[in-house]
Simulated scan of single mutants.
Amino acid sequence: MRDIVAGLVHLHELRIIPRDLKPHNVMIAKGKGLCVKLLEMGISKPLVGDASSLGPHATGLGSSGW
């Protein structure tokens, strides 16, 4: 969970909104320890200026049910 949250924090600091976050788009890699990566960022959207991803004009893109 920490890796997922850290990935989301990083994306939000870059003002990028991942619009299809779901279990299928999370990869768990085994190495010296477990490492989690967020995948499928194809429909992510950068926010420009003071734009927000919340509000009446939100698109609702992403996978249905997630």
Rank of each mutant, 00 (worst) to 15 (best):
residue 1 M to I: 00
residue 1 M to Q: 04
residue 3 D to V: 00
residue 3 D to L: 00
residue 3 D to M: 02
residue 4 I to T: 03
residue 5 V to P: 00
residue 5 V to Y: 05
residue 7 G to E: 02
residue 8 L to W: 00
residue 9 V to A: 11
residue 10 H to F: 14
residue 11 L to D: 00
residue 11 L to C: 12
residue 11 L to H: 00
residue 11 L to E: 01
residue 12 H to Q: 06
residue 12 H to R: 13
residue 12 H to G: 01
residue 13 E to D: 10
residue 14 L to C: 09
residue 14 L to E: 08
residue 15 R to H: 09
residue 18 P to N: 14
residue 18 P to V: 02
residue 19 R to M: 06
residue 20 D to M: 02
residue 20 D to T: 05
residue 21 L to C: 08
residue 21 L to W: 03
residue 21 L to Y: 06
residue 21 L to F: 13
residue 23 P to H: 05
residue 23 P to F: 10
residue 24 H to R: 12
residue 25 N to F: 11
residue 27 M to L: 15
residue 27 M to Y: 14
residue 27 M to C: 11
residue 29 A to D: 09
residue 30 K to E: 15
residue 30 K to H: 14
residue 31 G to N: 09
residue 32 K to A: 12
residue 32 K to Y: 10
residue 32 K to N: 15
residue 34 L to M: 07
residue 34 L to E: 10
residue 35 C to R: 15
residue 36 V to K: 03
residue 38 L to E: 03
residue 39 L to D: 02
residue 40 E to T: 02
residue 41 M to F: 07
residue 41 M to N: 05
residue 41 M to T: 13
residue 43 I to R: 01
residue 44 S to D: 02
residue 44 S to E: 02
residue 44 S to L: 03
residue 44 S to V: 04
residue 45 K to H: 11
residue 45 K to Y: 02
residue 46 P to E: 14
residue 48 V to Q: 14
residue 49 G to K: 10
residue 49 G to V: 08
residue 51 A to Y: 12
residue 51 A to D: 15
residue 53 S to G: 14
residue 54 L to W: 11
residue 54 L to T: 10
residue 57 H to G: 04
residue 58 A to V: 06
residue 59 T to C: 07
residue 59 T to F: 03
residue 60 G to T: 04
residue 60 G to A: 03
residue 60 G to F: 06
residue 62 G to W: 02
residue 63 S to M: 07
residue 63 S to I: 02
residue 64 S to N: 07
residue 64 S to L: 14
residue 64 S to M: 12
residue 65 G to Y: 06
residue 65 G to N: 09
residue 66 W to N: 12
